[in-house]
């Protein structure tokens, strides 16, 4: 038996480490190129954009509940989603009550994003979002199922006792005294319940909220197929999925949304719309190409090796 392997046999069994190195190099190199890759937003993202920007669905100045369930580990996708979402909310003066059921760190991570977007606004001489006046941080609630149930049953008692310090005051006060939540006591009181999540908390919420309030989700690519299931059955009104969703949101923010038979939704042209989504989008393309090439090479080599025999 000859030990010499043919090129086809070799290509059928490329060492894992070679593939790993290629992937790492390609991803890194792509990051140094800044290109706005074109996108074609899908219906779920368009619906989400309409829900967030259309004045009828979400009136300017109203309050939404924003459940942020992601931490560093899904930063790649969730941070971009959160940034795009916050940019829209802040530009439309939408107040938000922030909470998390997934991880104790999630509120802190969310606060960092708010801070970053605030800095961006400050640099552009726009109004900075203030705690108490514009948003409150309700913090972390352990037990996703239980909390979602409790929120659906009775938002006010579910988050009772959470405090926030108004600007210029020394003592923290009950969040329901704040302008953000003063008119909210049930989930039905908010026009939209938004969930940015790195796990399946959106599913848990959908099951527990049972259609009491329009629900929008920004989920990771993994959760996409499952969430689309709920989107199709109308339990989720709009959804942005993964990095693709971010890139689509960003281009919708830049270009606005025109759909036949529906009112036009405005754009935010002239503002900082392209962010983390576009920064990573090219690298995603090159990595996917590598993957496709690897699969094709493996198959071609397999067929060729068979033919030789």
């Amino acid at each position: 038996m000859a030990n010499e392997k043919t090129i086809w046999e070799k290509l059928q069994a490329i060492d894992r480490r070679v593939l790993y190195t290629l992937l790492m190099v390609i991803a890194t190199v792509s990051l140094f190129f800044k290109v706005n890759v074109p996108t074609k937003p899908g219906q779920p993202t368009k619906d989400l954009y309409r829900l967030l920007v259309d004045d009828e669905a979400l009136p300017e100045g109203s309050t939404v509940i924003l459940q942020s369930d992601w931490t560093q580990s899904t930063r790649g996708e969730s941070a971009g989603q959160m940034e795009a979402l916050l940019r829209i909310l802040m530009r439309r003066n939408i107040k938000f009550a922030l909470l998390s059921v997934a991880d104790p760190q999630a509120p802190l991570v969310a606060r960092n994003v708010i801070r970053a977007i605030n800095l961006e606004r400050k640099a552009k001489n726009q109004r900075e979002y203030q705690v108490w006046e514009d948003y409150v941080n309700l913090g972390y609630f352990p037990n996703a199922e239980g909390t979602s149930n409790a929120i659906a049953a009775n938002f006010k008692t579910a988050v009772a006792g959470r405090k926030e310090t108004p600007p210029g005051s020394a003592t923290p006060l009950d969040v329901f005294q704040s302008p953000v939540l003063s008119k909210v006591s049930k989930v039905e009181d908010v026009p939209v319940y938004i969930n940015v999540t790195g796990s399946k908390t959106s599913n848990i919420l959908i099951e527990r909220l049972g259609g009491r309030v329009p629900f929008a989700a920004l989920v990771t690519g993994v959760m996409g197929p499952e969430t689309l299931n709920y989107y199709q059955s109308g339990q989720v009104k709009g959804v942005a999925i993964g990095l693709n969703g971010v890139a689509e949101m960003e281009s919708l923010m830049e270009k606005g949304l025109v759909e036949t038979g529906k009112p036009e939704v405005k754009s935010f042209a002239g503002e900082t719309n392209y962010g983390r989504g576009m920064a990573y989008y090219l690298a995603l393309h090159t990595c996917l190409v590598l993957m496709i090439v690897a699969v094709v090479v493996g198959n071609v080599a397999m067929v060729a090796a068979r033919k030789k025999k």
Binding site: R16, L19, Y20, L290, M291, A294, V295, G298, N299, M302
Partner: peptide, 10 residues
Amino acid sequence: LSAAYRAFRI
């Protein structure tokens, strides 16, 4: 990547 390369064969 390695799983796809190995498993996605016709």
